[in-house]
């Protein structure tokens, strides 16, 4: 059983440097979103606390578990390709994609429930933030899954090796960013009151 993986260390992060510029831009947008939510809440504390109770915390827990686990699976995929194990890399990426799919299904069910109750962006300020913030993130999950799927296909074709796997690291870095954002979003929107 593999317990260690060889990685590069130095001055630059794993993957293509361009994805990191993109990641920083995305994180900046989400930081602004989080700040806006928190400061808007200051003038609407009772409204935010009341409607926060209508959210499904069980679904949020499942989704947080799914994203953290998917990120861990992606770590294993990167470790596998650094060990020249293309098949292992594909298996871990598929496992990560399954976790991503679980997130999408659970989140879609939440949206369906809200839509069924007639809730829209204009229902109130809390739902405006909740729906727009989570849907913005939802779209990033889809984008991340497309990237991971493309990486998995290339890995299956044998395009990566221990010496040449920047594509795997690039996809992994983006996926970790998607997880990172959710780690803040989950407590902020579902728990903090």
């Amino acid at each position: 059983m593999q317990t260690d993986a060889v990685v590069e260390s130095g001055r630059y992060p794993p993957g293509d440097l361009a994805i990191w510029v993109f990641i920083l831009a995305e994180l900046g947008a989400f930081a602004a979103f989080f700040g806006s939510y928190a400061f808007t809440r200051m003038n609407n504390v009772e409204l935010f606390n009341h409607y926060q109770l209508t959210l499904d915390k069980d679904a949020a827990l499942i989704n947080t578990f799914a994203l953290i686990t998917s990120s861990y699976f992606v770590v294993r995929a990167v470790a596998a390709i650094r060990d020249s194990d293309s098949r292992g890399c594909v298996r871990w990426l598929v496992a990560a994609l399954v976790m991503g799919a679980i997130f999408l299904v659970v989140k879609s069910q939440e949206y369906a429930h809200h839509i069924g109750e007639g809730i829209t962006l204009s229902t109130n300020t809390f739902y405006m933030f909740y729906l727009s913030l989570t849907f913005f993130h939802f779209m990033h999950v889809i984008m991340g899954m497309v990237i991971l799927a493309a990486v998995a296909v290339k890995a299956k074709r044998g395009c990566y090796s221990a010496d040449k796997h920047t594509g795997v690291e690039t996809g992994a870095s983006y996926w970790h960013m998607v997880d990172l954002v959710w780690l803040i979003l989950f407590p902020l929107v579902y728990v903090m009151r």
């Binding site: 593999q2 317990t3 260690d4 993986a5 060889v6 990685v7 590069e8 260390s9 130095g10 953290i68 686990t69 990120s71 861990y72 770590v75 294993r76 470790a79 780690l183």
Partner: peptide, 18 residues
């Protein structure tokens, strides 16, 4: 760049802690 070792075991513990 120098090559070093990333412990998968450490990442597994991090995952469990998270």
């Amino acid at each position: 760049k120098k090559r070093t070792v990333l412990g998968i075991r450490a990442c597994t513990w991090v995952w469990l802690l998270m």
